[in-house]
Structures are given as C-alpha cells and as structure tokens.
Design a protein around this nucleic acid. Sequence first.
DNA 1: TTGTAGGCGTTATCAG
DNA 2: CTGATAACGCCTACAA
Lengths: 344, 344
Amino acid sequence: MSDTSAPARGAATLHDVAREAGVSLATASRVLNGSTRKVADSYRERVEAAAEKLGYTANLSAQATARGTAAIVALLVADIADPYFGQLAAGVARGADEAGLVVTIAITERDPQREVRLVRALRGQRPRGLILAASRTEGTDAAGLDAELQAFTNMGGRVAVVGPGGGSARHVALDNRGGAAALGAELARLGYREAVVVAASEGIRTSDDRVAGFTQGFASGGGSVREVRRGGFTRDAGYETAQQLLADGLPEGTVVFGISDVVAIGVMSAIRDAGRQVGADIAVAGFDDIATGRDIRPGLTTVHVPLEELGYRALHAATDPEWDATEPPLPLEVVVRGSTPARA
Amino acid sequence: MSDTSAPARGAATLHDVAREAGVSLATASRVLNGSTRKVADSYRERVEAAAEKLGYTANLSAQATARGTAAIVALLVADIADPYFGQLAAGVARGADEAGLVVTIAITERDPQREVRLVRALRGQRPRGLILAASRTEGTDAAGLDAELQAFTNMGGRVAVVGPGGGSARHVALDNRGGAAALGAELARLGYREAVVVAASEGIRTSDDRVAGFTQGFASGGGSVREVRRGGFTRDAGYETAQQLLADGLPEGTVVFGISDVVAIGVMSAIRDAGRQVGADIAVAGFDDIATGRDIRPGLTTVHVPLEELGYRALHAATDPEWDATEPPLPLEVVVRGSTPARA
DNA sequence: TTGTAGGCGTTATCAG
DNA sequence: CTGATAACGCCTACAA
C-alpha cells in the first residue's frame, strides 16, 4: 500500500500514466479515451492499473481543444430558482448524464441584453449544444440574438429552443394554444362565464399563444374574457397585477387565468390578502402544473406540462445528430383542482 | 454591410484575428485576454476591430489547457428541481457571473456512489472550485468521497461545502442547531407542549443538528418531543411519514416539525388528505423558508435561511483565494406564520 | 497492434 | 512595447 509517486502538484497527466504503464502516449490514449478499441489486453490492463493508481482523470479542456468540440451542453434559463425552470433543468441534467455530457448553466434574468451576452460567452466553450429555455423576452434584441445563434450553429453547434422560437433552431414545442383552449373549454363547462387573464407582455409568444387559446376555448363554451392584464412571468408580477385587478373590482364568480402557475400562485395570494376567497368567490387557473400546485390549498387547476420530460427532450434536440423533428408533441392535459369549483 | 469573410466552417481563431489586424498572435492575445495591459492604442484598436468583425470568442478550452485551470466552478446538488437547491443555485450563478466564471452543474440524486463518480468526473474539467451542496447522504462512501475531494484540492482546486461537512474543505455553515432551538423555544412560547419531528435518516448531520436543536429548544420552554420519525429530505418522504404518523394517531394540538420546508409541506398535505386541519388541529413547522412557504395556506412557520445569499457565499468560498473563514455565519431567524397558531 | 510526430487554440517566456 | 516560439494535455493520421 505504499504509494510511491503521488503527484505532488497538479493532476496526473496521460503522459504520467503512459510512463507508469510503460507504453506510449497513443496507447494510453486509446485505452483510456478513444472509442474504437484495438489494444492488446495485457497493455490495456497495465494502462488501466496505472490510471487507477495515479487517480488519472482526462483533462476535458485538453480533450476539447484537441477534438475541436467539448462534451458540454449549455443551458440558458431565465431564473433557476423558478420551479418551472428547475424541473426543466432536472430533465436536461438527466439526459446529459446519460449521454456523458456536462451541463453548463447560465441565467438570463429575463434581460435580452444579458441573453445575447451569455450566448456569446457560452459559445466560447464550444459546447455540442445549446438549450434556450429563457422565454424569449420582450424588447428582445432579436437580431443580436439570432446573429449570435447563427454564429453558434455555423461553428457546428446545435441549438434547441424550448417553446416557440424563430430561426433555424430545433424546437421542442408545446401546444400552448391547444392546452389553453382545452382549459378554457373546461372552465366554461364548469359553469364559468366571465374571465380575466393575467398575462405577460404582448409579443411574448408563449404568453400570446396561451391567451389566444384560452380566449378561444372559453368562448367556444359560451364564456367571454373580459380583460387581459399584462404583467410578467413571475410570482410577484402575478401578485401585483391581481392587486390592481381587485382594486378595480372583481365580481364574484370570475375566473382568473394566470399565464403560468407561478403567476397564478401570485394571483391566489393577492386574492387572499385582499380578504377574498380563492375558489367559490374568485376562481383561479394556471398553466404548467409545477409541483407546488399540488400542495397549496385549494389545489391549482392547470394544464399539465411534463416539464422534466420537456427538458429531457430538449437535451436530445440539442445534441442528437439524428434528432427526429417529427416526434409527436408532448401531450398536455388539463387537471382540475379546487381552485375552480364547479359553479352551480 | 457586405460581410466579406464570414468563416465558413469553425469559429474564428485568435490566429485569424491577428492576421486580420496585421499583428502577431502574442499582441492579439494580450489585448483580447491577458490581464496586464501594455499595448499601443493603435494596435489595440485594430485588434478589437478585427475581433468584432470576425465575431471572435476566445476558445475557453484552449485557454484552460494553456493556463492549466479553467474559469469554471462546479456545483453539486442533490436535486435541482427542489426549490431549496434552486434558490441556492441562483446565488451561486449570480456570484459566478460577477466573477466571470461558468457554472457547471451535476445532480447526485442523493446517491453516494453517484456523488463520488460525479466529483471525479467534474475534476476532469479542472474547475477553479467545487461546491458541494448535496446534503451528505447516508451510507455515504465517506472514504471514497474524501479521497476524491483530496485529489481535487491536491491539484489546486478549492472545495466548499454548504452546511456541515468534514475534511479540509471550506464550509459555509448554517447554525442549524441554534435556528432549530430558537424555533422550538418559540413554539413552546406559543403554547405547544407535544411535538413530533419528521427527520431524515440518522447520521445526516443537517438533520441530526436540527433535531437536536429543536428538542433542546422545545424542552427549554417546557415542551417535549414525543417521537422522531425518520424519512428523507423530500416532499414525498414527508408525506408518507406523516401518513404513518396519522395512522398511528396524532393528538390534536401536537406540532409536527419537518426537518425542512419541503418535508413540512409534504406533512401538511398528508394532514389535509387525512381530513385533519393544519393549524388549530395539528400544527406544522419547517426549516429553510423556501419561497413556496409564503404562498401556501396557512403560511408555513419556519426558520428563515437566506438561501440565495448562502449560494453566493459558497461561490466565494470555492473560488476566492483569500476567503475569510471567520466571516460571521448567516443570521437565521424564525418566522411564525399561520401553520402554528398560538394555543389558548 | 503499437509508436512517432504534428496539430488544436492559447498563454507565457524571452529576446529584439 | 512587440513578436517568435516553446509549452499545455490530448488526439490522430501515418508509419513501423
């Protein structure tokens, strides 16, 4: 057990391993990394033993510069503390792990300028793929972003965007419109006739699609959307928007559709803080079905989106050379909970 | 606007920039990256213009191999979909961004074996620092982990662990014991006398400390912990453990202390699903103060932990050469909400 | 099957 | 202040 030569400074290099095993660099490289195996077993064993003994770990950076591309997938999200992105990221991480890829993460903070900057920075890593899950923000410097994305694909990277998006990127789409329509229809069936929607700024596709879908579905069931108030995609935006709504007067029996669960939860809190009741008094519905929706009371009616699976698919869209763009879209499903009780 | 030479394949290299600007590689490198600046302005401008024109982005991998260390910080968490880790990660990401570092993330899934494997894999990136936020799991292959960590520090990396931990790593500690004690004391003051705690397996420091602190604080106020039930750190573990507890009979007026908010939220749901009421009937308290606790009803009484700040500090502990280990611990504060009403 | 040598994009040393 | 040039650690034809 006498460790003779624990490398004092710096990690063990392939060179060290080769020397220790008494073989050439090439041979060591082949057994430790190269895919196509064709090394004599005796050598192979010696190398593996040496590597183990020295605690060798391939220097990914060196490998990357040599190969020209790194075993990395970059993930861009608006806010990693947001459960929506958290669950999505979990799916991405799972897929990456399976594929032997490292996940690099960056936060846009919903700032278009930052987004462009980050894409450019991530480009420096020469990742195999880039996943854009940062709900394309407003004022979007669309041109700048597209240019950056273009540069990325030009150098051989793939980009996948979650949700609607433009350009030549691969999309992992959700049927936002259809899901919202189904939700609207269901609410109408439950007896609601008046709705207000709390959305994000106009121009954000995800928001627009959900608003349009909901409006249509709700109308098809005989209901009508009285108003669309614009806020943002956060819990606080939902809270504040709802506060104003309440101040302006919100009739009993109205259902408020929050563009996302996070927003809807903010709405619920505002309603309660205003001394009103969620459910029988004012109903609330959301979209996404984040885990929290299960634990609040009343439970939040929403459209279930398989977030984790969505992330998993995005990972593949961003890294699989032979990705099947025709794969059927993920099934969305409305789930009714206590926040929208049937109306007499 | 006629882009003359958009590099058809592959990204623009420093070499390209130098040629385009008519200077040497060294000069180009100095203006674009090197820290100590001493390049004539005329040259500097030419280089910057060329870089801009070519859309040049330094190849981080190449930089890393040349420098010997990458501008990367690796983050290891148990589950990124868990809001606790999500908020923590947000803090890490913020700090990293400020420091010009890229964040690489890996998920342990609370599996000790995986944890060791991941640390070894991350080591391959030669990151400047490594942040361990994966509540050291049970059966922990402590030896294997420590060896891996040791190897990492030996090659010049710093490792920071969030919460209690062993070895030579830097710690960003929480006063779990003190916080829990304060919570226990407060609950006793509110009139509670009987408590049950839903904890994680014995041997997990964070859990053990909170249990011990709570027990002591509660006792100091005249209360007594009737039982400690072991589950895990997840919402579902909390739910299931509470189910059993309820099946075994839980007297009115008991307060259930969930080792973490996530667990406590599971407990709350179980209580409700069993037809009991959270608050007046059975009280519930947690620990961490994740964002969700604000939006559920009744609000969850808990110990506030500045999660985002915790992550921010961890980032610095893992990357700042001159980190001040004596920095005062983050202040914890108990916040009482509706889940633990004062008892008559 | 194995080894030799050249190259990947940057940095850093050391003369001019 | 600038420019050759040798590393950095690894991969990969190409040759033996």
